[in-house]
Amino acid sequence: MKPGRFTYHAPRTVADALAVLGEHAGDAKVLAGGQSLMPLLNFRVSEPGHLVDINRLPDLSEPVRTATGWHVPALVRQRAVERSAALSGAFPLLEAALHEVAHPQIRNRGTLCGSLAHADAAAELPTVVTALDGRLRIASPRGERTVAAEDFFVFHLTTALADDELLLGVDLDDLPAGTTTSFHEFAGRRGDFALAAVAGQATRDATGVVTRCRLVAAGVGSTPLRLRAAEEGLLGARLDDSALAAAARAAAHEARPTGDVHASAGYRRDLVATLTRRVLADIAAAVPTSVPTEELTHA
């Protein structure tokens, strides 16, 4: 379990990083927290000739407030996200999901963006960022572009990133008033990748009717899976038992699980139903946090 031979680069500027990536496109890998990449190197599943360590790039380690929400740059560690009162206040989904990601030691090194770039189909963070409708900022020698989370994840371990592109960070917009979120996961052990997980957010009007809704599942498709039929069924509905049951049924139908030694496809499908219902039950029971108090008293 020793990696093959590689040349190590530690650029000090994004431009230099992009230059090395451009020069060795296809034979270079970006190294962020190393928590997914190093095992792949040690297993020799991946044997790049060049490693581009981005840990010395400036100005990528702190979340930044933007006009519409937050920008989380490439070197913000998962643990920092979880511990940031501002980020977990704005996006409780992030904190809830991070509690299920690996263990504190790993989150101390692993980055939010590294998890997105790695794109494991059973990973929590790609699912949550999709549920939050995040936008990924990407740089290459050709310039910068922005890709919506939903378009970013292409397949298990495959993203829209080209060989010479660097993920600079992710933009998350503040949630509209009246929105509640919830995350439920089932995994074999604490800190394991999800056998299935569901991240959800719903916005309700003053009468409790759902006006906006997003449900995304992990572990039951080749990418984070939007549960569109379940979402559509909830629009215009109140979160009562029958709406929850219908959404759970719809979610199970649209899940695309595969079986493996740990759990059958059928079991994971059942889980999606259960987790969807639990996510929605949480939302139904919660007082929507971002509803201004005046609105609540009028409701």
């Binding site: 263990h103 074999g188 052990r189 604490r190 800190g191 394991d192 990748f193 030694v261 740990h262």
Partner: peptide
């Protein structure tokens, strides 16, 4: 990853 050794959490 595939062999579920229990940790202190389990």
């Amino acid at each position: 990853l595939d062999y579920s050794l229990p940790s202190s959490m389990e």
